[in-house]
Design a protein around this nucleic acid. Structure first.
Lengths: 262, 262
DNA sequence: ATATCTCCTTACGTAACTAGAGGTGCAAGG
DNA sequence: CCTTGCACCTCTAGTTACGTAAGGAGATAT
């Protein structure tokens, strides 16, 4: 005759910090079935249940879903089989972590941009964010066609450089949106294109562009999908026209696919 | 007459990587309403919609919920008002990140324990995990009653020390589970308690225990809730008895609340 | 006798989709 | 002409891990 101390669901909930509703739920699922007081129908929890619940909570903490936990708590001894499973959990968790870290990076950059500019076009901000979001894909994609070093030089910049680039980018986009529609030979427009080219060359730094220029045209389209533009169709068309005109005027040939993407 | 190129939902989905279902869903929500071909009823997406979708995806990336996004995409210009909102996002994201990091830590430790031991009692492993999970609370709680330095010395150990401690812990628990029921004056039991005390003193290191011993008894209970034991009631009771006997025999007084918790 | 307390069950709400069933319109192949 | 297939449509239900609320029973306190 063990005196088997039991607890009501309320006591058990208070003891463990797990809500009554959750205990009901686990009971319904069969994950943690409590005995019943035959007269009242009230659930009775034992010390044994307490340990079982601790197991459940721990496994949940490791990232397992309840149905997986239902399987796992059957076994009283863990062996190397669990190791594999744990390694999968680890990978899943690390993926989540990385994705959150990228988001944090984007949020931070958005904040510092807002601090500098105090008001900006939503499309512009969005395109900056989307750029961060897709950076990894962009790199992987570019590495396919160029080299790892090239990509590294392109992307691995310091915090300040990044912000500087963002600011320039924003300024340029603002200008474009302001000047759109003006004749392509307007001096203001010419200055804009000048600026554009300067910022672009700052961006790529002192590296060799031949890698980039050897990209076939159809793949440049794929790249465009990865790097979103904050411009409307008209703005984009106008900018292309202005670019072409500038190139022609300066005798820099090739009035075809001018690429103004950063 | 703008030629307004439009896309079917399939094309749009392929272009953006967002599933057709999701596009339907966004349409139903009113988040991204597509025009309809009057004859077929098919959805028609424009370039405008593309940019809107990019905004949606970007905001989702920043951690906003769809209903919040529905509000946010109304405004075409962002200002300092958004900054606060972004800072909240940042905090939320960082909280998530921390929690994931703790989980990763737990998973890693579980893995390395499994590698060392190759098979172990599930309760023991769970209690190790739960210990990691509640470490923060334990620290906060202890800091209330002792000092920050004391707590720091207790918890801030190197990776190897941690694993070493875990291994000792596991060994002790295994021993307890093996010897449970033996008479308290059995030499094996005595050796176990010896071991227990040695490991405990290794754990607290060369620091002053007076801080810990001044904890009132009722609060020691609270601590027990935070630090789960992998032992069954019998095992626990037996261990307490053995402890008391050991203390008495060695003339170390106080046969009351022996505390074998790590 | 009534109010309060703890417990019970049933069932709907949440977030952001995914999956499936069942149906329409249109083009090409037999 | 009929069928097949494709791309699209709508509508319903399922997913995860609960939270919240409604309505009721039995025990205790005033």
């Amino acid at each position: 005759m063990k005196k088997e101390q039991t607890f009501s669901i309320g006591e058990f909930s208070a003891k463990t910090g797990i809500s009554i509703r959750t205990l009901h739920y686990y009971d319904d699922l069969g994950l943690l079935k409590a005995e019943r007081d035959p007269s009242s129908g009230h659930r009775l929890y034992t010390h044994e249940d307490l340990r079982k619940l601790q197991k459940i909570v721990s496994l949940k903490f490791l990232g397992y879903r309840l149905d997986q936990i239902a399987d796992l708590i059957q076994t009283t001894h863990f062996d190397l089989g669990l190791k594999e499973s744990l390694q999968m959990q680890q990978k899943a968790l690390e993926a989540k972590k990385e994705q959150i870290e990228t988001s944090i990076k984007a949020v931070k950059r958005a904040i510092s941009l807002l601090e500098e500019e105090r008001e900006l076009d939503s499309h512009v901000l969005m395109s900056v964010i989307r750029n961060i979001q897709t950076e990894k894909e962009q790199r992987l994609w570019l590495e396919q066609y160029t080299s790892k070093e090239f990509v590294g030089q392109l992307y691995d910049k310091s915090e300040e450089e990044m912000i500087e680039l963002d600011k320039n980018y924003i300024r340029l986009m603002r200008e474009v949106k302001k000047l759109v529609g003006k004749p392509v030979d307007d001096p203001e427009v010419e200055k804009l294109i000048d600026d554009f080219l300067k910022v672009s060359s700052d961006f790529v730094g002192e590296q060799d562009l031949s890698d980039l220029e050897s990209l076939p045209k159809d793949q440049a389209e794929t790249l465009q999908k990865l790097i979103p533009s904050p411009l409307t169709d008209e703005e984009e068309a106008w900018l292309n026209k202005a670019m072409d005109h500038y190139m022609m005027a300066k005798g820099m040939l090739k009035p075809s696919q001018s690429d103004h993407q950063l």
